[in-house]
Design a protein around this nucleic acid. Sequence first.
DNA 1: AAAGTGATCATG
DNA 2: ATGATCACTTTG
Length: 168
Amino acid sequence: MVLTKEYFSAPATLLAPGLLGKIICVRSPQNDVIRARITETECYYGEGDTACHASRGRTLRTEVLYSQGGVAYVYLCYGMYDLFNIVTGPAGHPEAVLIRGVEGASGPGRATRYLGITCAHNRLPLDPGHGLWVEDDGARPEYEELTRVGIGYASPEDQARLWRFKVK
DNA sequence: AAAGTGATCATG
DNA sequence: ATGATCACTTTG
């Protein structure tokens, strides 16, 4: 079944582990669909999370994080890699789940490249009509909780949070 | 271990 | 207008 905006309106802290095993679907320019099961995620939660892009408030870039859950947040990292996040939670509260890996591609930059997701997908609602959506086939894989990667600029307590989730 | 790469945001 | 910074990957 296709996951809806209502599903994505739950908190990122819940959805990051919950999305493991779900299937990202992307319609390519050639009109075929690429599918891959999520194997690793991280959550970024609110302005109070010093690792979250919205920790310094609303800007042109972070505006999309304040949407109601169920839209894509894609941004260019290190000048080379498009990183794909799913915005979650209620409107007005900035939070998202970063897709760090899918079956067939580990690492957030590689996963987006593998799926064919680019900055052109930024702000798009996640549904089949927009060519980018997520399906649940009932899989509930076991996972482990780890600290987030690449956030050395965040406060020590935020760095210590177990907000990365990885399928065993 | 270190470079490569460019949008973004804060500063002047 | 300028410069530091960066939720990474590849190569050695």
